[in-house]
Nucleic acid binder design. Structure first.
Lengths: 131, 131
DNA sequence: ATTTATACACACCAAAAGGAGAGTGACTGT
DNA sequence: ACAGTCACTCTCCTTTTGGTGTGTATAAAT
């Protein structure tokens, strides 16, 4: 046990856990995963093509792939209705919703600070040569 | 038309802002950016090669590239000492630290829920074909 | 009989990401 | 004289990513 130093940031983290967490974040941080998370959070239950339309710009391939991955990781549940033409519904699980909530702070940060970033970029361009 | 679900999620967001925020998140969500953010947060001020060692597994190319991008966006400050051999120090700016803080909730989420993900994966593998 | 709709799978291909390794410039220690 | 240091840059080369386009099953609608 270490002396508690006010904030809890252990400097001796289990490397296995760390690796795992990193892997998870790596996927979760993915562009499409984030977007799907967002649309599913907003609209609740959706069908395959509905998600595609709402997301905008995603190819069928990426949609399938991302949904599969999210299903595998327990973020969405997939319900197949044995009808013709096929009907499949996707919803966020509790785990998925909790993830979405965790990401919320990042979204808020981005919304609050994007002006600072824009300013920094401009300053950077001026400092260093542009064009 | 959605039923208001308690939380405030505006469904009519400025699309320009949204695009911007998405771009930002896209970069920020990058693997290396997150790792560098972490090591810099933990160790304060560091030199180029120190960051490389602490990060582990990053190539010089990616290290340079990521640091440049972070500098451009105002997350890190880069101080060059005109000595030989060269000495360059990197530190998180306030903006960088605030980003790191925002990401903290995601890390915590991952740490808290990684077991659920592992379980979901196992269940998925059993449901669907494995190997 | 042909078209339409749905949720994919599969194959092909172009582009981008990213790793490995060598090179650089200038000084310092041996 | 010569190797070593540091923070890169540059060039190759492999891997990954992701878009497009096509195929499929089946029943209802035209």
């Amino acid at each position: 046990m270490r002396a508690p130093s006010g904030r809890e940031i252990p400097d001796e983290i289990d490397p296995v856990l760390e690796e795992l967490v990193r892997g998870i974040i790596g996927q979760v941080a993915d562009k499409w995963t984030m977007l799907l998370l967002e649309v599913l959070e907003e609209h609740g239950t959706l069908r395959f093509t509905e998600i595609g339309k709402l997301t905008g710009g995603i190819s069928q391939k990426m949609l399938t792939q991302t949904l599969r991955q999210m299903e595998r990781d327990g973020f969405v549940s997939r319900t197949v209705y044995p009808v013709i033409p096929p009907k499949v519904e996707y919803t966020l699980t509790e785990l998925g919703r909790s993830l979405s909530a965790a990401f919320c702070s990042v979204w808020e940060w981005a919304a609050a600070r994007h002006a600072d970033i824009a300013a920094a970029r401009k300053a950077f361009e001026e400092r260093n040569g542009k064009v």
